[in-house]
Structure formats: C-alpha cells, structure tokens
Design a protein around this nucleic acid. Structure first.
Length: 444
RNA sequence: GGUCCCGUAGCCAAGUGGCUAAGGCAAUGGACUGCAACUCCGUGAUCGCCGGUUCGAAUCCGGCCGGGACCUCCA
C-alpha cells in the first residue's frame, strides 16, 4: 500500500512500525462551536482510512484529541456567562453527534487537554531543560532558530517567514517565529505551573498526548492541510528536539473544502454546519469521498445532489437483491464466486492501496451497482446475487455507508406473493392495493 | 511583499509521457412496463490559451489568462 507522505512529499510504501498494527493520531476540534462541512472532511476521510486498515485486518489504534482549553472557548464562556467546561462539554457532545451523523466511528480514544495538563507541563519543562524553550515573565516560548529543518513540512524557509509582513511583533519573543508553549493569563480558566498560573499554547498538546499514548511515535499523523503551518511544523520541531524524530512516520493532510470556490471558514462566513445539512448523509459521505483527499473539494449543490441520487440508486438495488433472496430463503446460502465481481473487488483494493484513492473506489462501487442491476434483471442465480450483496457489504463497511434492511416475516412474504399473483391474474385493483401495503411497510 | 496549489464536457471527477481521455449526475433518443416507479442500451471533450522539449504530452518546461490557499486562529 502506498501513502503520500506530506513530510517527504512523495508516495511511500506503507510499513507499520509494529507489524499488523496501525497507530494513528488525527488533530481533533477545538470545541467552541458546531462543526461545518469542511471540518467533516478529515472526520470522514480518516475514518475511511481506519476502516480500510481494519478491512485489511490491521489492528488500528485511532486517537483524536479535543482541544478544550483555548481562547475561543474562554471568550465564548464569558459571552454566555457560563464556565468553560460547560461550553466544551456541550460541543464535544455536538461533535460526536456529527461524527455519528456522517457515519464515522465514534469508538476511538479522545484525550482532552484538561486531562493532559501535567503531561503538557512536563513536556514543556523538558524543552526548557534542553534550552529549546525560554521563560519570560511567566510565558514560555519555543526557540525555533536552532531547529534544523524548521519549515520542511510546510515547505517554507525561516527567512521568508521572518520577512513576511504579517508576523505579529511580540517584544517578549527572541524571534518573531518563536511560538508560545505556555501563556500567563488573567482571564479565564487557569492552571498551575512552574512558571505561574496560565494555560498551555496550542502546539504541545498533540505531541504530549502522542508521547504518552504511543510512547513517542505514531504511524500516521493526520489533519487538514490548514494545520501544516504552523501547528504541525511546531509539533515536529518540539519532537525533533526531545525525541529526535518527527512524531509520525507518515504525515497525511487532507485538502480543504470550498464553497463556490471560496474557502469555508469560521472566521469568514459562508458556513454550512454538518447538523444543518438537509440531505441523506450517505450521499454526503459519497460526495466527500468522490474526490482524491489531497485535492480541494468544491461544494456545490448540483454535485452533492448527484451523489445523493447515486446513493438512492445503490440502496435501491441493494434492497431489491436482499428482498429477492429473502423471499427465496437464500440469504444464508453460500455465495458463488463470480469473476466480474472479483474483478471489481480487485479494482476497489487497487484504488484504496494507491494512497486511499476513494474516488476510484467509489467508481468500483458504481460498477458493482450497474452489474448488480444487470444481474438482477437477467435473472442470475441466487449464489451470484448473494455474492454481489456481500461485496456491497464490504464496500459499505470500508466507505462508511449505512443501509438498513430487514428480513420479512412469513406474513409479509405472503403479502408479497399475493401481489405477484394479483399482477399475474391482471387483477390490478388488488395489485395496487397490495403494492400500497408493501410500500407502507417499507418492503418495496 | 514572500511561498505555493489548481484550471479535464452544463455539474462532480479519474488519469501525471504512449492503445479510440475512466466513471457518475444532469440532458436527450430508444427499450422494458397494466399504470407508476425502477432498470438497461445509445448520444457529448481539439484536456484554460500560446510556445517549447520529445518519435509521441492532458501529463514535462516556459510565458500568459483565470481561480484559490498559506505567511495570523482555522480541518
């Protein structure tokens, strides 16, 4: 399997650190608001990565944090006249509800900053000891200057960054590029530290958590490409100094989502929240997986709708085959190997093995859709249809699509065969009535 | 000001040097059908423009036009 490593900017053969195990860490949300559909992209994509590894029988340890200490949370808490925890707990719950909405798995390890305060402080202390961090009046800053390769991930050099006119001048810093590890504060929630009361900067939590949970290095560290600089660059800098490695063997970054070719951003309006999306989330998920994850994806109503209707077609054929096999009591039979189905499965694997090319994986699903329709209309034998159904199950499982089917009870089967019989007898009044009943029961 | 990325049919999108440029949505013609729905078959591209490299380019190089991102919190 090949993965595009954004640290080295090339496709690399995936070799896990420990055989059969994939440790992955994805930067999670700062919980001060509902997430928008752009935020959903890493949630959906990295969940798909996880699912695919699991399909290949890897044991996946999936970790994604909650940043529950942050200026934005404090601001909101003051605004709403509640304490920070109330805000963060509310939006953690909201986040998980959205994760579930888009059919991403919620059973993963979710460390919170508030539970990691001593690890974070400890991590910063070590940086201070190594003299890669310095204390000024209760603030602690990371000294970027001496870190070799600073800027490699985001492909920029220190001189360019310094000459950039937009870097804020902070007189306490030795160098404008130095970033905050610990911030002395008067407002909002405060924690004790060797440097006085304050709160941690944003960039240490992930490395401290990875250090604690995985003992230093993960196989995959992922997040949106917006995090490359400065966040991930700074994570790497800290880890290089302390552990002499870049925390992750493979760095993966998803492209951003635009609306009408403009970046969707909490700070610039034009935001669609996940919870407010008024469409089938399977269709939404297909849409999100229809482009290669590193490319930007442009949100557009027409495109979204086309994937929603694609999903309707897929669920229709799935249900039809399921129903047919159910009526014939063949659902538990042995499936028959069918060469074309095997070919489609291979295409699917090939696509996913090629840096998780979900766009081509979706194409394989569409091929299965068309073939299934042909098989069903062509009165193929039940073994082949069952095998098609099982292949759908595999694709649904990996891509995170959810379909609900049920088996009919004997009474329902009775109604169904009466319907077929009525049509045969050209008793269309009765047939229509039975069809209505079946339709109301959600059977057809 | 600095650093990058992208431009494939109305829409989404694969393809990154080599057979007639995948696939889907929409549109349209046909088939199937008691009706309806579904479904199947068919129909569409001088790959933003200009030039170069090459036996050969959507794919590599240069210029231009258009769009976007990052350098500040951001998935």
């Amino acid at each position: 399997m090949k993965i595009y490593n954004s640290y080295t900017n090339q496709l690399e053969e995936f070799q896990p650190i420990n055989k059969g195990v994939v440790n992955m860490y994805i930067c999670g949300p700062t919980v001060y608001n509902y997430i928008h559909i752009g935020n959903a992209r890493p949630v959906i994509f990295f969940d798909t990565v996880r699912r695919y590894f699991e399909h290949l029988d890897y044991k996946v340890n999936f970790v994604s944090n909650f940043t529950d200490v942050d200026d934005k949370i404090i601001t909101k808490a003051i605004q709403d006249e509640v304490d920070e925890q109330e805000i963060s707990e509310k939006f953690i719950a909201a986040f998980l509800a959205d994760v579930e909405r888009v059919n991403s798995k919620t059973d993963y390890n979710k460390p919170k900053v508030t539970n990691y305060m001593s690890n974070i402080i400890n991590y910063i202390e070590k940086l201070v000891e190594k003299e890669f961090a310095y204390v000024v009046n209760g603030d602690v800053y990371f000294r970027v200057q001496n870190v070799k390769d600073y800027g490699k991930l985001s492909n920029r050099n220190i001189d360019d960054l310094i000459s950039g006119s937009r870097i804020e001048i902070n007189e306490k810093k030795e160098n404008p590029l130095d970033f905050t590890l610990w911030k002395k504060t008067d407002v909002g929630i405060k924690f004790d530290s060797p440097w006085g009361e304050g709160r941690p900067g944003w960039h240490t939590e992930c490395v401290a958590m990875i250090d604690d949970i995985f003992g230093g290095q993960v196989d995959i560290h992922g997040g949106g490409s917006g995090l490359k600089f400065p966040h991930h660059e700074n994570e790497i800098a800290q880890s290089l100094v302390l552990n002499n490695h870049t925390i992750a063997k493979y760095w993966m970054h998803n492209g951003l989502l635009n609306i009408d070719n403009k970046k969707m951003s909490k700070s610039e309006g034009a935001v669609i929240l996940v919870k407010d999306l008024d469409v089938d989330y399977n269709g939404f998920r297909l849409f999100m997986l229809s482009a290669q994850y590193r490319s930007p994806i442009n949100f557009n109503d027409e495109a979204l709708k086309s994937y929603v209707s694609e999903w309707e077609k897929i669920s229709r054929i799935y249900a039809s085959i399921h129903l047919k096999l159910d009526l014939e009591n063949k659902l538990d039979d042995a499936k028959t190997v069918h060469p074309v189905l095997l070919e489609i499965y291979k295409e699917f694997l090939e696509a996913m093995n090629n840096d998780f090319n979900t766009a081509n994986a979706v194409t394989a699903l569409q091929k299965l859709l068309k073939l299934s329709n042909q098989l069903l209309r062509g009165n193929s034998d039940s073994g082949i249809l069952l095998s098609a159904l099982k292949l759908f199950d595999v694709f649904f499982d990996v891509l995170g699509l959810k379909i609900e089917t049920k088996r009919l009870d004997s009474e329902e089967k009775e109604i169904y065969s009466s319907w077929v019989q009525a049509r045969k007898n050209k008793d269309f009044d009765k047939a229509d009535e039975l069809r209505k009943t079946l339709s109301e029961k959600g059977i057809i």
